[in-house]
């Protein structure tokens, strides 16, 4: 379990991480989502005791990072940067980490095998592809068989096969009861792996919710309709108590899952439809909207304003 409490990091005037409070629980994959520059990596570095918080606190199973005895056996991390000396072999890289935490040498062989780098164990890291570098980083995270794992953008630079492997690995680690905290700037990636979601934008907490909840709340389903008899159709829908919204290019949108109902209405009134299609707003859109609002919020000082209102104010002005 990782607990953040009012965690804040300021660099001079700039606030990179702003009063983050949330808990990463064991047994599930928790996705840490935010656009580039949102403060994900800074947060992860503070969890690992690498960067000092300006304010607030972060605890690993109730303790500060530097109070952990042999920390690699409690928490393993893959950080964004390739954290290995290019002139050192994969085996020696893992060996020096193992020795520093009193981890038996045989674990080096085991994790190399787990990540599929056994064949290149004696090769220098500089010859590694980005994907192999990520695998080496994951091997280092797994070295101490820790109960908590932290992955910063683990699928970056991986090929489709590698991405699938990372997803499966994270899920199986969580299924073993471990705490898995993984950052990404891609909502689509998170939707496939995470059970729980923590979203930040400009260092602030925007959402801390289960993935299922997030999907239910944010994936708006609607029906898109095109008809040459638009005015009549609008009347018919209005009479049936259905609100249709025009969406720019002459199509109409109706919230909810009402395609069949609308089709029947149109048939009854002998209306010609060129399109009647159920749509689903993507999670990526929902995420973009969520984080875009955080940008708006910061642009104004004080009251949160929805983008719609902001647009209207601008027109009036």
């Amino acid at each position: 379990m990782i607990e953040l409490e009012g965690l804040t990091k300021r660099y001079g005037e700039k606030t990179a991480v702003d009063h983050l409070t949330f808990t990463v629980r064991p047994g599930i994959v928790t996705g840490f989502l935010g656009p580039n520059g949102a403060g994900k990596s800074t947060t992860m570095r503070m969890i690992l005791g690498l960067d000092r918080p300006t304010a607030g606190d972060v605890r690993i199973d109730g303790r500060h990072y530097d109070e952990l005895k042999d920390p690699l056996t409690s928490i393993g991390a893959l950080l964004e940067a390739k954290g290995a000396h290019p002139g050192r072999s994969a085996r020696n890289h893992l060996l020096c980490l193992a020795q520093s935490n009193g981890i038996p040498d045989r674990r080096v062989r085991e994790v190399l095998d787990t990540v599929g780098l056994t064949a290149v164990a004696r090769k220098k890291a500089k010859g590694f592809s980005l994907g192999m570098g990520q695998r080496l980083g994951i091997a280092a995270a797994l070295l101490g068989d820790p109960r908590i794992l932290l992955f910063d953008e683990p699928v970056n630079g991986l090929d489709p096969e590698g991405i699938l492997w990372v997803r499966t690995l994270m899920k199986s680690l969580a299924a073993e009861g471990r705490t898995v905290f993984v950052s990404s700037h891609l909502m689509s990636e998170m939707a496939l792996t995470a059970d729980h979601l923590v979203v930040i934008g400009q260092g602030r907490l925007l959402a801390d919710t289960s993935m299922a909840d997030f999907i239910a709340r944010n994936s708006r389903s609607y029906v898109r309709i095109r008809s040459p008899q638009r005015e009549r159709l609008l009347d018919v829908l209005h009479q049936a108590g259905i609100t249709a919204v025009e969406s720019g290019d002459g199509t109409l949108e109706v919230d909810g899952d009402k395609a069949e109902h609308i089709g029947e209405l149109a048939a009854r009134h002998q209306l010609v439809l060129h399109e009647l299609s159920p749509q689903q707003a993507s999670l990526e859109e929902a995420f973009m909207q969520l984080t875009a609002e955080s940008v708006e919020y910061h642009a104004h000082s004080g009251t949160p304003v929805s983008p719609q209102q902001w647009g209207d104010d601008w027109k009036k002005g």
Binding site: L48, G49, L50, D66, L79, K82, H85, L97, S100, N101
Partner: peptide, 18 residues
């Protein structure tokens, strides 16, 4: 400085926070 120029320092200090 090898530690710093290669990014190894973060891995090292995560392993040895003292």
């Amino acid at each position: 400085s090898n530690e710093y120029s290669t990014g190894m320092i973060r891995t090292s200090l995560a392993a040895v926070p003292q």
